[in-house]
Design a protein around this nucleic acid. Structure first.
Lengths: 235, 235
DNA sequence: CAGGATTTGTACGTATGTATG
DNA sequence: GCATACATACGTACAAATCCT
């Protein structure tokens, strides 16, 4: 792994564990240079990455400050799978369990939406995200089977995106997202600890490969109080 | 302006005008070095920025390629006030009324959040968006007064962003957005037709100028059923 | 298929500018 | 004014991915 990336991960780790507390100032670039035996440019690349991912905020002439991260956050501009996000919040217990794993024929509404030939085989996967002992997020994924051969329940329990990108070497190009509130469904009640909430926040996600082919459709259904989305828009 | 940013803008310009066509390859870093009389590091910073902003994609060993523009357009990367976007999504018009327009001292929490010296004068504006006869969105804007001189209630009733950009000629750099659900407040009940909804979706928006100075903080509070957000994320 | 040429990625060093306290 | 800390810019070297002869 690249050195700046190692420094990034080490620093992120120390913020997650609280060694570098929220609101506090990180060591200066010069100090980090000596600590990690790296050049200033390399240290700066690590710090830039931390800022891009929402860990810190740099202030010219003052220093680099640790940001608070108390809620579940979808912080990045890029396409991020939920386990990637959770991985970024280590220190809090988040567990994924596969509630359902089926090999089905694409339902009509989905074949239409994804522009597939009717009858296409797909994986339909339900995964529940448990945060601090409560089931608060339900992910329902639909993958085109031909495009993710060898996908198993065990992989789904880990990170499907890591499998798709690193094992299969697939090139993801872009994803369309939509966020809206919806009434809770029977499935939500079955899978989630909803308490009295009557609504869920639903993120729908259509993911495309470089050639423009869609290989995934996902609905991520969040309990209201555990939902947060952040991003940075630029001109 | 920094040199790498000048190169960034020049290249972006040449892509917008079509001089660098979509799907085509940009000149190599070495060529750009000579063309702009800059070091490789500086050229690379400009290219990184272009990629981050969705103009190009870099491929190790191959080159830097111009992305299709139509998808960038659809992206929410313009820093548009959310309600304008919402209106265009539904293809209908929203009526805006200014519910409150004050000249105040920055409250402590906001001075802290925006990194302002305490006592800074600000405009605090409440605007209500009416759709199909119901008040469904409440925008609360805070602007640093020094940075938007001459802002009036009449302008607020139209588009503040149009005023800021075209009349004042200010250069907006980027905005940080966060979306989350919150309990309704007294203010929500006062301004909106909430029916039985107990929650609102709140979009907070911190907007920055090129120099990194923040000039605005906004909360856009949406009735649950009238909220929708879409965007395109790119790897 | 080998191997060199091209192109982007990483890393180091140095110097100077700008913001903050 | 001075010290500290981050920002920009230049130059160099080598690594890794890709392309081409």
């Amino acid at each position: 792994m690249a050195k700046y990336r190692q420094i990034y991960e080490r620093l992120a780790e120390r913020m997650k564990t609280g060694e570098y507390a929220a609101e506090s100032k990180l060591p200066s670039e010069t100090e980090l240079m000596h600590e990690y035996e790296a050049s200033r440019g390399t240290v700066r690349k690590a710090l830039d990455l931390l800022q891009e991912h929402g860990y810190v905020r740099k202030h010219h002439g003052k220093g680099v400050f640790v940001l608070r991260r108390d809620q579940i956050e979808f912080q990045f501009n890029g396409i991020v799978s939920f386990s990637e996000v959770y991985a970024s919040m280590l220190g809090r217990s988040i567990q994924t369990s596969v509630a359902s794993f089926e090999d089905i024929e694409a339902p009509a509404w989905l074949a239409d939406r994804m522009n597939l030939t009717p009858g296409t085989r797909m994986f339909r996967i339900e995964r529940v995200r448990n945060f601090d002992g409560e089931n608060v997020i339900l992910d329902v994924n639909y993958f085109v089977k031909d495009l993710v051969p060898g996908l198993t329940e065990e992989i789904a329990a880990q990170s499907i995106y890591a499998y798709v990108e690193h094992e299969l070497g697939m090139q993801i190009s872009y994803a369309k997202r939509k966020i809206a509130a919806e009434d809770v469904t029977e499935l939500d009640r079955l899978r989630l600890d909803l308490h009295d909430y009557e609504y869920v926040i639903v993120i729908t996600n259509d993911t495309f490969l470089y050639e423009g082919r869609q290989f995934e459709y996902t609905e991520s259904r969040h309990r209201l109080d555990k939902f947060q989305f952040s991003d940075v828009a630029r001109r």
